[in-house]
């Protein structure tokens, strides 16, 4: 596979500097990088898994609404960003690795490169403070 555009590479380098979980996908939603804080959410290490196809990593999360009902994928910020190439934000619950619902805030944004080309998406998981 070809080398990633530098806008993707620089997003990875930024994510590597942050203490908040960051996920980076290509335009199809395949997970091409997640940082160390994100590893605790996924329960796996990027060094071990490498990139993950959308159908694999998309099933790890079980997003729930405030009543504990499953949320449809099309309502999630990153899915919306990959579809419309716009930023999105949403507060919802995910089932943690220990099986407990955990309230989170997710911000997603598109990576639009120097030439105006859509290159991928980024999702940032904030510890929920009722943003």
């Amino acid at each position: 596979m070809a080398t990633y555009d530098i806008e993707i590479i620089l997003n990875r380098q930024l994510a590597d500097c942050l203490s908040i979980p960051v996920f980076i996908t290509d335009t199809a939603g395949n997970l091409i990088f997640y940082n160390e804080p994100a590893e605790t959410i996924l329960g796996s290490r990027f060094g071990d898994t490498g990139e993950m196809p959308v159908e694999v990593w998309g099933t790890i999360f079980k997003p729930l609404d405030e009543k504990g009902k499953p949320l449809p994928p099309e309502g999630l910020p990153l899915v919306k960003t990959l579809k419309d190439q716009l930023p999105h934000h949403k507060v919802f619950w995910i089932e943690s690795l220990k099986g407990k619902p955990q309230k989170i805030s997710v911000t997603s944004y598109p990576i639009i490169g120097r030439m105006g080309k859509f290159l991928g998406g980024v999702a940032i998981f904030w510890e929920n403070k009722d943003i």
Binding site: T3, R12, Q13, L14, D16
Partner: peptide, 18 residues
């Protein structure tokens, strides 16, 4: 090598590799 880990020795992640 810009970034906390310096050069990433994976050809997909090296600026200008090709």
């Amino acid at each position: 090598a810009l970034g906390p880990k310096g050069l990433i020795f994976d050809k997909k992640w090296i600026s200008g590799f090709e």
